[in-house]
């Protein structure tokens, strides 16, 4: 379910490292909780984000949820697909519907994120608690 080579946060973001760049997205669990996503608001390339700061937001018809930067870095690319097809975030959250690519400014932060197994256990517990 959750790719083993991704790193996860308790706020339901993931990051995949490609050299000195981190590809960031939201998890399948997050997209399910949000329901039909209608709009994705992302930062401009060049924006510097600190870990844990608001990266952008995703909207359903009747809710807005903030997304937080899982790691620190500068935005080098924004996924243009999402501006015309926000529904992709419901369909392929771990693949085509990544959000931004960050040039990592503190790569060590990765180590403190959750593994796929830890994240699975975490959302498993959250779902059981419903």
């Amino acid at each position: 379910m959750y790719p083993a080579n991704f790193h996860y946060t308790k706020e339901h973001e993931w990051v995949r490292v490609e050299g000195d760049v981190g590809v960031v997205g939201i998890t399948d669990h997050a997209q399910k909780e949000l329901g039909d996503i209608v709009y994705v608001d992302l930062p401009k390339p060049g924006t510097h984000l600190d870990q844990g700061k608001t990266l952008g937001s995703v909207e359903s018809v009747k809710a807005v949820s903030d997304i937080y930067a899982p790691v620190s870095g500068e935005v080098v690319e924004v996924n243009a697909l999402l501006s015309t097809a926000p529904e992709k975030l419901n369909e392929d959250p771990h693949g085509d519907a990544w959000l931004v690519k960050l040039k990592l400014s503190a790569p060590d932060e990765i180590k403190r994120l959750l593994s796929a197994e830890d994240y699975q256990n975490y959302v498993g517990a959250e779902e059981a608690g419903h």
């Binding site: 039909d36 209608v38 709009y39 909207e59 018809v61 926000p86 529904e87």
Partner: peptide
């Protein structure tokens, strides 16, 4: 029922 999702997308 009205499709509010497409209206917003």
């Amino acid at each position: 029922r009205v499709d509010e999702v497409t209206a917003a997308r």
